[in-house]
Design a protein around this nucleic acid. Structure first.
Lengths: 195, 195
DNA sequence: GAGATATAAGTGATTGATCACTTATATTGC
DNA sequence: GCAATATAAGTGATCAATCACTTATATCTC
């Protein structure tokens, strides 16, 4: 059973009813907010009955949490994957992978961008925490000024990329984030070193 | 009739039923999302009847839009107010005022941070647009590199501060944004000049 | 491998609760 | 005594979730 994580599915096998439900929910949640979307409309968009939704998820809240955990864990792994390199290389890789993920599955990325704050339980181990650890390591190695709290500095650095993504949400003329990764990398490094 | 914009009211006179409704709505919207809050619960939190809500606002949607326009316009004016100075001075003033507004009325600021994307009609004239114009002016004057799209660069610069605010929402150890304005200013300038 | 039995996938009608909003009535300040 | 301000009691619609039931797919027994 092939596991995918692209336009066709989040964690379930592509094409299955469960994957169609997840994709429909994701799209509608981003368009109209989580609470603003009914289980009936999710089922209609997925082309399944409303009852089936409850065979695969115990509640609408379970569905929304499952989707968030999928992208949240994906982003966390993405940040941690580049910890064993020089800071410049790590930042370049993380920025590139962030942009690629956003471009390859914008609804999933936008879902995390918009609604992560509704899942505070997940925040204790997420991409922000992973980035803060990367900052702290480079501070203790003397490669970054140690005066700033690591999680705050990580927030500011990530904010450069995330707010550009937010601009795309609001209709700014940004097609693909990947078109700007060199600039993002320079800006992130500038924040880390000059703040 | 005194107009206020602090913990006790957004645009209405302090202490009036209308102001209490606005403040209750704001608090609940930030806690539970706009669609996740009922008119009944807003009225209960404000200590008024549900019907009274409809004497002051024609709908729940009107109420949420009124609140958003209030903070949106306030932020726009804040950015435009500092356009006639040197770039360094403008950035310092804007960062200071942003942080002060966030600290003085966190629910109102958080409301803008969280739900602005649900009001795309307002985006054409907002703080992001005002910041983009400031960037464009400094680019044409040769004080900033002209290679980057102004709205994208403005997004990235604002993102430094806004993502720090987001960190506070997720429970990071940030008490007051105003405690970090010098660092924010340095980071914003670094993004603008090095990106 | 055929028949029997179990399990998973799927349906759509229905539930009580809650939704945004309205109407009829009361109270207030001048 | 009259507006303006407020309230409580409603309205039909829609909500998330569950229900009894059907169909398809395994798994087991011999």
């Amino acid at each position: 059973m092939e596991m995918v994580s692209d336009e066709r599915g989040v964690t379930a096998a592509a094409g299955t009813a469960k994957a169609r439900i997840e994709r429909a929910a994701l799209t509608l949640f981003v368009e109209r907010s989580i609470e603003g979307v009914s289980t009936k409309s999710i089922a209609a968009q997925a082309g399944v009955s409303e009852g089936l939704l409850y065979r695969h998820f115990k509640s609408k809240s379970d569905l929304s949490r499952t989707l968030m955990k999928a992208i949240h864990d994906q982003l966390t792994i993405l940040v941690r994957a580049h910890s064993g390199q020089s800071l410049e290389a790590a930042v370049a890789d993380i920025v590139r992978d962030y942009a690629a993920l956003a471009d390859n599955d914008w609804p999933l990325f936008a879902y995390h961008l918009l609604y992560m704050h509704r899942f505070p339980n997940l925040a204790s181990d997420g991409p922000l925490r992973a980035a803060a650890e990367l900052v702290a390591f480079n501070q203790s190695a003397g490669r970054l000024p140690a005066a700033v709290a690591p999680d705050l500095l990580a927030s500011m650095a990530l904010g450069v990329v995330l707010q550009a993504a937010h601009g795309k949400l609001l209709g700014a003329n940004i097609e693909a984030l990947s078109d700007h990764i060199d600039m993002f990398e320079r800006a992130v490094m500038a924040v880390l070193e000059d703040a």
